[in-house]
């Protein structure tokens, strides 16, 4: 198996491709240019992962996040959560829907329509990322449509299962749509042996790489 630095580089590249595709699809749908920052994947043990995630939640999301998440559980086992700070979501949704966003108007609550919009965005991002990963390693991954939730005072325990055989992959995802920056994060809680399987498969497929 590749060493730690290498595996994070490999996962970064794989997810990078997925995020690029997600941005492409979303940009096609909403007809707007999306600028991406360079995503970087950290592969952490649950304890460190929890610490890093709690920091993100406190600083960027100030506790309230909108989460889209899916679980997968066949050959690969894990859970993917796409996190966005809730306070930015009204603006983000308005941009996607070509609506004018009025800070004063309307409540802070999310409507069913907002939830459905986020479900679609979550579906696009997760489909692209997991789809790319699944293609790259030729391992089929099965999952359902994302569940959407708004969490107040979110903390890492919502997204991370602790256990010796668990790993946490964290990737920050910065979108910029017409000057509005959305600092999201993708958290993948994965069984250690799933990551090993991915890396083994990559070694096999790109032999000599």
């Amino acid at each position: 198996m590749a060493d730690k630095l290498n595996s994070s580089d490999i996962m970064t590249e794989l997810f990078n491709i997925g995020v690029g595709q997600a941005a492409n699809t979303l940009s096609d749908i909403i007809g707007k240019r999306i600028d991406l920052s360079i995503p970087n994947v950290s592969i952490l043990n649950p304890e460190k992962g929890k610490h890093v995630l709690d920091q993100y939640l406190a600083q960027v999301a100030e506790g309230t996040v909108m989460v889209s998440s899916i679980s997968f559980d066949q050959q690969l086992e894990g859970r993917v959560s796409l996190l966005f700070p809730a306070d930015k979501m009204h603006q983000f949704i308005a941009l996607c829907l070509h609506e004018t966003w009025d800070e004063e108007a309307v409540t802070k609550e999310f409507t069913d329509i907002d939830y459905d919009t986020i479900r679609e965005i979550g579906n696009i991002v997760i489909n692209s990322m997991i789809g790319e990963l699944s293609n790259a390693v030729s391992i089929p991954v099965k999952y359902t449509l994302p569940e959407i939730d708004v969490l107040d005072h979110a903390c890492a325990d919502h997204f991370v299962v602790f256990g010796d055989s668990q790993l946490v992959l964290i990737m920050y995802l910065d979108f910029d749509i017409e000057g509005t920056e959305i600092a999201g994060a993708i958290v993948i809680n994965m069984a250690l042996n799933s990551l090993e399987e991915i890396l083994d498969q990559i070694n096999k497929l790109y032999n000599g790489v």
Binding site: T25, D28, I29, I30, I93, C96, L97, I113, D114, D116, T117, R119, E120, N123, N127, I130, G131, S134, P140, V141, K142, Y143, T144, L145
Partner: peptide, 26 residues
Amino acid sequence: KQPFFSRAMEQLVASGNPVFFSAAMH
């Protein structure tokens, strides 16, 4: 007919993972 629908259907045929399109965006 829009390309992202056809892409989504191709992916669906290949992977079997469900796809969702919201009324608000479409």
